[in-house]
Design a protein around this nucleic acid. Sequence first.
DNA 1: CGTGTTTGGTATAGTGGATAACAATTATCA
DNA 2: TGATAATTGTTATCCACTATACCAAACACG
Lengths: 171, 171
Amino acid sequence: MVISKSPARKAKPVRMQPKAAAEMPADAPLDLGELADLLGYSLKRAQLRVFEDFLSVMNPLQLTPAQFSVLLLMEKNPGRNQTEIASTLGIQRPNFVAMLDSLESRGLCVRLRSVSDRRSHVLMLTDKGRATLVRAKKLVAAKHETRISALLGESNRVALVRMLAKVAREL
Amino acid sequence: MVISKSPARKAKPVRMQPKAAAEMPADAPLDLGELADLLGYSLKRAQLRVFEDFLSVMNPLQLTPAQFSVLLLMEKNPGRNQTEIASTLGIQRPNFVAMLDSLESRGLCVRLRSVSDRRSHVLMLTDKGRATLVRAKKLVAAKHETRISALLGESNRVALVRMLAKVAREL
DNA sequence: CGTGTTTGGTATAGTGGATAACAATTATCA
DNA sequence: TGATAATTGTTATCCACTATACCAAACACG
């Protein structure tokens, strides 16, 4: 028998509230306590917000952050295969297949059978992919990164990115 | 008819690589290009790494970041109901149910039917929950946050958290 | 040649997050 | 008061993302 990880909700909470503690406002914002000082918490919250903003800015081009990063890598590293691009981005190779299917079906990139190793597919941007990437970069620069820079100040934004990269790399 | 978002993989890439471009090292690390300057990218990467470290540090207590944050909120805000705790953490109420089931089945907290509003469940830490939280805090402080502080310097770590909170709040 | 490895791909499962709907309860207000 | 609306916890789904096992084709290499 397998130990179930799912809820074992049988006895519903029929218990009553014990003591009627001192009257509280009851509608005041909650106290985050040490949560506010936890790096992981603010990190996650900020990441969700930044991705949300990125998505809304990129709405006309219908590119997710992950798709945008793939196109960027293809542009700067033409001729690489799926394994190389995927692993650089921390994407599992099986999960990269559907992602490429999507980009290729939209005509943004192509898989070319490599002449030197017929197992691998060389990835290349199409003209449409390059044009889309140009527009995407402009959107990101004009409406996304600019907004963050306006909020933090450009030097702080750069320092922030540098610290995050260090954490990602060296922790 | 619905427009399918799924892959339309029919024609497999039988095309051949066109020109044999200039010889490349082929095994050099890829160039991240503007990806390295994108806040969203380093943010996501750092978040994954920090959560990974948190999980390994918290391994003996088997607490995820989300569970830890719930316990912290319960401690600092006893007597709040599920909706209040969940919404403060950005958790959808339906998704919070299974999470509470798990914590309650482990004896870390209880749902008490409120005397003032019999719809809602007042959330309280149990003694075991409080004891677990004490141990968890010590682990996080000693092995997690300390490590990040050693990497960045404490003042930088504080500045980092402050900037992230600002982004999460004001972007 | 035969063995082992790599590559892209399939199938599948787990997890996190989002929405619709519902019963019980409370709030609102004519 | 009584009818209607809103809220709370919950269930049932659904979708996106991630992780693992496995496979055939192609390659590496002794």
